[in-house]
Computed example of a mutant assay.
Amino acid sequence: MMRRMIGMLLATLCVAGSLSAQKAEALLDKAAAAYEKSNGIQATFAANVRHEKTGVAESFEGTIRMKGNKFALVTPDIRTWYNGSTQWTYMVRSKEVNLSTPTGDELESTNPLTLLRTYKKKFTASYIGASTAGNGRMADDVALTPRGRSDIARVEVQLERSTSLPARLTVTMKNGMRSVIRISRMQTGVNPPDKTFSFNRAEYPGVTEIDLR
């Protein structure tokens, strides 16, 4: 009898886990479709980055423009452009710009919104539950955990029900770094030109370029 009860419990847990994954994937697929149909987005966000091991924390605000797999990210200290292959990272204080070819993990840690388009390749999704976004709208929370080797330990995405687009992203790295990004405004149909996603040297005279590729 005890073995039968344990078997039934395990079966129930498996079914519940399967349904949770299906719901999470459906929500993420809907979010990805909404993004693809958006014709480019621009978002304003507030971020809090904390290293759990050292207790060091930093808060800042910024904006991001995205279209397809390209993005341009602006924060007070750093500006980043990614054109789909090359990434430029400009350090405001040092007036240096680093050129690199980022890995998938690096892109996802720099811009977690890229997970909407790539999560199926490396992550397992599960449904956390319903929640309320910062603007008071109903939302759903989804968790992503890596299936293989990754610098990322866990990602949580809050998706607004009315738009299917993210309202909050929480990224926990294996090194103890935790980033919480709250999106305060999301504009769709922005359709930024391709030059938006590449570094324009003419706008940054005297900059030092460091090629890390």
Rank of each mutant, 00 (worst) to 15 (best):
R93N: 07
R93T: 07
S94R: 08
S94C: 00
K95D: 04
K95T: 01
E96P: 02
E96K: 13
V97H: 02
V97Q: 03
V97T: 06
V97D: 03
V97F: 00
N98H: 06
T101I: 08
T101G: 02
T101Y: 01
P102R: 04
P102W: 06
T103I: 01
T103S: 14
T103V: 03
G104F: 01
G104D: 02
D105F: 02
D105S: 06
D105R: 00
E106A: 07
E106H: 03
E106R: 01
E106Q: 13
L107T: 06
E108W: 08
E108K: 07
E108Y: 05
S109F: 06
S109W: 05
S109K: 09
T110M: 10
T110D: 03
N111I: 04
P112M: 09
L113G: 06
T114L: 12
T114Q: 13
L115G: 09
L115M: 14
L116A: 11
L116S: 11
R117S: 15
R117G: 10
T118E: 09
T118V: 14
T118W: 08
Y119D: 06
Y119Q: 09
Y119R: 13
Y119T: 08
K120E: 14
K120Q: 15
K120A: 15
K120L: 10
K121D: 15
K121L: 14
K121V: 12
K122I: 04
K122Q: 14
